[in-house]
């Protein structure tokens, strides 16, 4: 018995706080993350949609400019959106440190050489802003590079690395302090920030690996490479311990009966082949099948219509 081909289970699961929507290669990730957010806004008090893609895709999708802080989406009650540029966060942080001297630079270089630290810092920034306004659920439109969650692999490494950096500078810090004067304060600031980040990441890790709180929706298309990428992504999520139970298969062709478009028919046959494989491999997942539309899905109205198909399966 297969599961319902809708996202209804996710909508019904009130305990969920974090929903990721991911998928590589122009599969319609943003359209779907906006649609999921729209459906959630109908049955939740306060929904936040976040994008970390520098390409401002949320602003394009809704036809409204979004910034680093949550702003309500025009025409959609209970929904806010924000777009943050991860690299911007790091530059801001660095610029805010005014004592620029040799010791500081060295410690900074050490600290920022830790792998995953830039994603971790940007996530920590997001978490801080999110905590300020109490949102019932947050939908993440993950960056196409798929590196968004890489830092989750590293909490242990991050801890060790931070520990090492601390150790090194407590050893050399006092010595340099006496030579250079009162540098201790600035170093403490940096460590304060890194410790704060580490604590937030540990908490984030706990929440993301809890299936009652977090789930990941994979978006793909019925083609070989997308399927391969999806399988790889799902195995990676399993390694991280992040729950995933829904796959959206997008851009499916439904040529009119009697259509004489050879390309459409050929493509449809290929898609059918891969769709069968998807059903066989992911038999314990919700598989939502969405059609290829004839127009771009942009604007609240179009997105509304599209999002209906997430709960009411499309019939050609």
């Amino acid at each position: 018995m297969s599961l319902a081909p809708t996202v209804q289970e996710i909508l019904d699961q009130k305990s969920l706080r974090w929903i990721f929507v991911g998928g590589k290669g122009g599969v319609g990730k943003t359209t779907n993350s906006c649609s999921v957010a729209l459906q959630l806004a109908k049955c939740r008090e306060n929904v936040l949609l976040i994008s970390t893609d520098p390409a401002h895709n949320l602003s394009d999708a809704f036809g409204q400019k979004f910034g680093k802080d949550p702003s309500p989406v025009n025409g959609v009650p209970n929904l806010s959106a924000m777009e943050i540029d991860p690299s911007g966060t790091i530059e801001e942080f660095l610029a805010s440190q005014d004592n620029q001297d040799g010791m500081m630079d060295m410690v900074q270089d050490l600290a920022f050489a830790i792998p995953g630290i830039d994603e971790a810092l940007s996530f920590a920034e997001v978490m801080k802003r999110v905590k300020k306004q109490d949102f019932s659920v947050v939908v993440f439109d993950t960056a196409p590079t798929g590196h968004t969650l890489r830092f989750l692999q590293f909490p242990a490494i991050l801890e060790k690395a931070l520990g090492k950096v601390r150790e090194l500078s407590t050893r050399f810090g006092p010595m340099l302090n006496t030579i250079l004067g009162a540098q201790g304060k600035s170093i403490d600031e940096i460590f304060g920030k890194l410790d704060e980040t580490r604590d937030i990441i540990a908490e984030v890790n706990r929440q993301f690996t809890n299936p009652d709180l977090t789930t990941f929706i994979c978006v793909c298309i019925a083609e070989f490479l997308s399927l391969y990428e999806t399988e790889r992504m799902i195995q990676e999520l399993l390694t991280f311990g992040i729950d995933t139970n829904t796959i959206i298969v997008n851009q499916l062709l439904f040529p009119k009966p009697g259509s004489n478009c050879d390309q459409c028919n050929a493509r449809k046959r290929l898609q059918q082949k891969y769709l069968e494989q998807i059903h066989e491999l992911y038999e314990d997942y919700h598989l939502v099948e969405l059609p290829q539309l004839t127009e771009e899905v942009r604007g609240v109205e179009a997105l509304e219509k599209f999002s209906q198909m997430l709960v009411k399966p499309y019939k050609p």
């Binding site: 070989f224 399927l227 391969y228 399988e231 494989q277 066989e280 491999l281």
Partner: peptide
């Protein structure tokens, strides 16, 4: 063949890992 029998291939890949 991963292209013709992706499901079977993926299941074998999972078992292998």
């Amino acid at each position: 063949s991963s292209k013709d029998e992706f499901a079977k291939w993926a299941k074998l890949d999972r078992e292998y890992n």
